[in-house]
Design a protein around this nucleic acid. Sequence first.
DNA 1: CTGAAAGCGCTTACAG
DNA 2: CTGAAAGCGCTTACAG
Lengths: 338, 338
Amino acid sequence: MPTIDDIARIAQVSPATVSKVVNNRPYVSAETRARVERVIAETGFVPSQRARGLSRKRSSILGLIIPYTSDQLFLDPHLLELMRGIEAVANEHDYNLLLSTAREAVDAASACVRMLRSDMIDGAIIVETNDVQPFAAALAAESSPWVVVGYAQQSATPAVHADDYGGALQATRHLLRLGHRRIGVISSVWRPFAIEERERGIRDALSEAGVALDQDLMALGDFSIESGGHAGRALLEGGSPPTAIFALNDRMALGLIRAAADHGLRVPDDLSVVGFDDISLATLLTPALTTVSQPGFALGTAAASALFQLLDGAPLAPPAALPTDLIVRGSTGQPRDL
Amino acid sequence: MPTIDDIARIAQVSPATVSKVVNNRPYVSAETRARVERVIAETGFVPSQRARGLSRKRSSILGLIIPYTSDQLFLDPHLLELMRGIEAVANEHDYNLLLSTAREAVDAASACVRMLRSDMIDGAIIVETNDVQPFAAALAAESSPWVVVGYAQQSATPAVHADDYGGALQATRHLLRLGHRRIGVISSVWRPFAIEERERGIRDALSEAGVALDQDLMALGDFSIESGGHAGRALLEGGSPPTAIFALNDRMALGLIRAAADHGLRVPDDLSVVGFDDISLATLLTPALTTVSQPGFALGTAAASALFQLLDGAPLAPPAALPTDLIVRGSTGQPRDL
DNA sequence: CTGAAAGCGCTTACAG
DNA sequence: CTGAAAGCGCTTACAG
């Protein structure tokens, strides 16, 4: 691999001049520029990113930190939409994405901090797949800018998130309006703040209608299809089963529908089901899934744009909440006993 | 951010000694080591990866090159399984993954080459999501080692792939054994070599049974659910529709099943459907999808392991083919007229 | 066991 | 417009 000195020697100029040509800077005569460019083309010279990064103090790499504790999280189509959005904006800015997915919660914290502190990346997007509180403090002390896709619980943290509260509120009101009173919830053992917000939306909608959230109607999954099935079975086999179940992501809702079928229950006649995310497979089942759509791609572009603004020295924008939307399809209907 | 010189000054040793401590090298007295380690802990020093990379001539970063032309590809659960496998092995070796997903075919080539030629990464895994031939030659000239997840058409290219031919052969034989003779195929407009192999498996199985592949029974999609629906409709609305359709990935198969339902056809009574991949959602539909399982995670670990062997200077291993497996579920049965 | 010095391959003022 | 020199923050022989 040729270096800038090789190019300089061959083109009979100084390395400084080659540098100017490579970086499209002025004060190089047209003739010299042409000569250098020819040599670069002939040799296939590509500047060393390491050396360039060392002297320029930036790497053109963005960290994408996904502190997942579950493989299931990584397979969630919503997370992928998010990544696509981030990637699209990074591409525009000629940045690459460095993936960091620490396994254990403790490791996650130190891996995040290490990545931010090492100069591998110029900034990071941290996906709040779990409770990020444990290392938020550590992150706050770091010099590299970072943006959370999730909730900023320290006001000085730039963050973008979907309107989880509003989405859950709408979905629960929808079930109440249909006449459901025994409404089950499949929530999550992982506790990103988005889950708290969704639960809060459910509670508020229920209390508007004078309905209390029955703890017996609350089950937990891990966002996987299978866990939705397990949680669903637990709820359906309880003393007085619910007439509707709100699963806090679509994959668990799909597992739940499967479990309901195994129990001989038809959706929506015997059981209404609502999900959250609106993944592309939500429309494939019969009946198609009623769900809350989440703007995954837009969340990704918003987070990445915010990070680039930060890198450009712009002041910290207030946390942005992108709208969610209830999509009513066939999996919800009136309860049987109406 | 403290540098190695800061640490050296505070601990009253030379930078060389700090370097030894940081890299766990011998020839440092226990006392000195302890002192340096204390200073490192107190300051939160993390060595500059840029500087380290520059002098060590390696970056501890692996490139993951996914030259997709379609957003749909990136959403494919099979691709994700692959990424998980790669990521798992990279993690073990303390490597991070640098994502590169070039959009246009031309860009893809130059982006791949640039990434391999720049010293950003120590090696790369290239996912053959499309025909990689156009830039295989350019890649072959590069010094960084790389492994293809797909087919090595130049013998000197290390590659791992699933036994696409065998899987398609099995699946087609299964349909033939059930009595199908008019077998439709939903193939792909993108032409990774895996698709050629699957088509070859189909042709060979058919010709074993003395059946020719009717071009009217061949439709193309782009791996998306929607395209499976379109292609399916085209096949079902043709002159003499097939009694079975083999979609070359699961997502298209799911779209096809949906389209069949819209046509008033029941699966498998009126139409048998086979997919390829065995994504987790394949079991959710009623009936569950008969499909060819592909070892996505294992392909990822195999590719990454091969790359690390190459980095360790091991000789080039012959291309590895991992077994695929026909999983018979409810979406296939005897044709109506038997 | 410890440290001075050169080197990795760029960029950036600065002088000419 | 051009180039000499210092510097980015490490590591690596090498000498002591």
